[in-house]
């Protein structure tokens, strides 16, 4: 098996005078060459720390990490020739430069031939619908355009492994789709290319990734293909229950016999409970609790499991709840 990225017992602790935060707590990971690999988890799970170690910006406290077969601790200079990173919500570069100038500038830090890189930039700008903005100042770009430009910056240096850290965060639906499409297209051009993507958007990981690792509190809690992960909750009946706002209900629902896991999110003034039921019979117990709470039922529906459900099952609560914990 050809491995693009591997970590062994990777651990990173941030220390300050007042506290010690364990960001990664023994991560073992293998990403195959040619894979689109997703690292999925709530904010603060350790995803970005993992990426920063792999792109040589941060040293691990212990453990090992290899990128393209090279040790990121000792062979970091060689690693840097083979990688690129694009982070979401990034506002880097120089506002007074034009888009194509900024892209050219970054390519020079990799020693790229100017003429070749200019052609490549023009192609990529065209492909991502940015041709008209090529001579616009970076400071005048919308956040969607800026993120596309950042993606191009990652691609023009022709990396073997591309790290995408929350690449679609805060983007509108159209811009996020364009970014994902370009990543697919780039991968399709050369099967030896690898993408490692961190995200807390379950749909994105499901749609884009061949395999996914779910990370929580610095540990990998599960990994596999999205289908395999969803398989873990296949036996459960997943029921979405929409209720009017009211008193806290989550713990009471979790206590109902036959409720394997439950999470809640608020949307448009309605509480949306996601319940994992080990049998349909558990629904009657759930309804009794709801009636007792005085809340009004706005909708009930059974649906197919998602990665979010797998996360809830594995961790015991939803991503939003985990972030607040």
């Amino acid at each position: 098996m050809d491995i693009a990225v591997e970590t062994k017992a990777l651990r990173r602790v941030y220390r300050s005078r007042r506290q010690e935060v364990v960001a990664l707590d023994g991560i073992d990971l293998q990403v195959r060459r040619g894979e689109r690999f997703g690292v999925l988890g709530p904010n603060g799970a350790g995803k970005t720390t993992l990426i920063k170690i792999l792109v040589t910006l941060l040293l691990p406290s212990s453990g090992e990490a290899f990128v393209d077969g090279l040790d990121v601790i000792r062979q970091f200079r060689e690693v840097r020739h083979r990688i690129a990173m694009v982070s979401g919500g990034e506002n880097v570069g120089f506002g007074m430069l034009k888009v194509r100038e900024q892209l050219w500038m970054f390519s020079q830090f990799y020693g790229m031939p100017s003429a070749q890189v200019r052609r490549h930039i023009a192609e990529l700008l065209e492909r991502l619908g940015l041709s008209e903005a090529a001579d616009r100042r970076v400071s005048a770009l919308s956040s969607g355009m800026r993120q596309k430009m950042n993606l191009i910056r990652g691609l023009i240096t022709n990396p073997r492994i591309l790290f995408l850290d929350e690449p679609t965060v805060a983007l509108d639906v159209g811009a996020a789709r364009d970014v994902r499409d370009e990543v697919r297209r780039w991968m399709a051009e050369d099967p030896s290319r690898t993408v490692i993507l961190t995200t807390h958007y379950m749909m994105e990981a499901d749609e884009l990734c061949d395999r996914v690792a779910i990370v929580n509190r610095g540990r990998i809690v599960a990994q596999g293909t999205p289908a395999e992960l969803k398989q873990q909750v296949q036996q459960d009946a997943i029921v979405d229950l929409q209720l009017s706002p009211g008193n806290r209900l989550l713990d009471a629902l979790r206590a109902v016999d036959g409720v394997a896991a439950a999470s809640v999110s608020e949307q448009d003034g309605i509480d949306r409970f996601s319940l994992h039921l080990s049998s349909d019979a558990a629904l009657s117990g759930v309804m009794r609790v709801v009636e007792g709470s005085g809340r009004q039922i706005r909708g009930v529906q059974k649906r197919e499991p998602t990665l979010e459900d797998a996360f809830v099952k594995l961790v015991g609560r939803g991503m939003a709840e985990e972030e607040q914990a």
């Binding site: 910006l57 840097r80 020739h81 990173m85 506002n91 880097v92 570069g93 830090f109 990799y110």
Partner: peptide, 17 residues
């Protein structure tokens, strides 16, 4: 501004920057 990450991650030297 976030540029340092990108400079440091490139296979260039900080002295050249």
């Amino acid at each position: 501004g976030g540029n340092l990450e990108l400079f440091a991650m490139a296979p260039t030297s900080l002295a050249a920057i």
